[in-house]
Simulated assay, not measured.
Amino acid sequence: MGIINFFKNQLSQVIEWKDQSADLLVYKFRSDNDEIKNASKLIVAPGQGAIILYEGKVSDVIDTPGIYNLETDNHSFITTLTKLRTAFESEHKLKIYFYRTAESVNQNWGTSQAIKYVDPIYKFPVELGANGNFSFKISSATHLFQEIVGAKDFYTTAEAKQVIQNRFPQTMSTYLATSSISYQTIDSQLGTLSMGLKEQLNVELQNLGFELTDFKLNGTIFDADTKERINKIADITADALAAKEGGLNYVELEKLKALRDAARNEGGLAGAGLQLGVGMELGKTFNDQKVQIINNDPNTDPVVQLQKLKLLLNEDIITQAEFDEKKKGWLEKL
């Protein structure tokens, strides 16, 4: 069997990547001593390409399906049988690496670290996670082979996915910081974000020999600190709307709330003022504010006054009895 195999290895070969797996991006064709004989046939199937590495250098890249003749210095019998001093091994090494030209589709991704940027409207730091899916392909087989794969016999889709996905967080942070998209509208602009991020990511990925053919940002989730900041803004917004409905501005509403808290304090208005560091004068200011809002000026619009009374009741600044008494008086003026 040994002598039969020896002579069999001197014959021209048919070289092809059979049973191509979607899990592999690059696959080295196995050949004894990397001595592919002259006049061997190389078959490149659809969805495949081939890198020819001859005498240590990339001599050709084939990206079109077809059958190709190989011309090397490894002539059958003559080359091998004259290499007695090198144990019948030729120094004319020819290696063939097949690579996947078809897209690798529907690769799920999620950020393993927080994406950080400053909200362009509210100017507070935002941290969020994101997820989606993407498709990619090899855009430069030579660059990928020389810079990433090297001398490995195979390179998997999973390895490429990890390399690509590691570029997502920093690119997304930079893009969000310069896109003027607030946390309030981020979920409504996922499509726009996806297209912009794909363009930005491809600028970087081309240096690795890859290209995103599709990229989707499907959802985001804010971290706990960001949610707390968002809730505070939501509360302030709701209070501002409530104040507007009652004919007040936000500052006036906050004064009324302070008045309510002072009224509940054991020390009364004076005690509340001392706690806030403004002394007795603060209590007087709040008290004047309350009188102003619930006064019975005959020239004041009764509807506006009723709205203010309702706001005072909702904020527990006046009691239900006080509200009913004042409401009766304003209703009589309608």
Rank of each mutant, 00 (worst) to 15 (best):
G268Y: 08
K308A: 14
D235Y: 04
F136T: 02
I15K: 11
A262W: 09
L190W: 07
L190S: 12
K116E: 01
A262C: 11
T285F: 09
T157S: 15
I186K: 07
I67A: 12
R229A: 07
H75V: 09
G49I: 05
V278Y: 06
G129I: 01
D119F: 06
N74C: 12
N166A: 10
F323P: 12
E254I: 06
T72E: 15
F168D: 01
V105F: 08
L256F: 14
N207Q: 14
G2D: 14
G219P: 03
T220F: 12
G219I: 00
Q184F: 04
A258F: 00
K310H: 10
N74D: 15
F136A: 01
N33H: 14
L334M: 15
S182I: 06
K227N: 10
E332Y: 03
V105P: 01
L128H: 11
M280I: 12
N131C: 08
I36Q: 03
F286H: 07
K116G: 02
G49T: 03
H143P: 04
E16M: 04
T237R: 10
I43K: 02
L25N: 06
K8W: 07
I51C: 12
L256S: 04
D239G: 03
V149A: 14
K152Y: 04
T157A: 12
G191V: 03
K308I: 04
Q275V: 08
G247N: 01
F145R: 14
L24W: 04
T72M: 13
F154I: 00
L42I: 08
T185G: 01
R85V: 05
Q320H: 08
V203D: 10
N287V: 03
K333Q: 10
K333T: 09
K328H: 13
I115N: 09
L70R: 00
L217F: 06
N33W: 12
Q305Y: 01
Y54H: 06
D239Y: 01
I36H: 06
G196E: 05
L241W: 08
Y27C: 15
E332G: 11
D324C: 07
I181F: 00
S104F: 07
E71V: 09
I36A: 00
K152P: 02
D119I: 10
E322I: 02
A102Q: 13
A45N: 15
L276V: 05
I115P: 00
L334T: 11
G66Q: 08
G2E: 15
E89F: 02
N38D: 15
Q289M: 11
F323R: 13
N9I: 03
S12F: 04
T72G: 14
A45P: 01
E281M: 02
V304D: 15
L144D: 01
K227R: 09
K308C: 10
N9K: 10
R260W: 02
V304K: 15
E147A: 11
I221H: 11
D32K: 10
L217W: 06
A151R: 08
I233C: 00
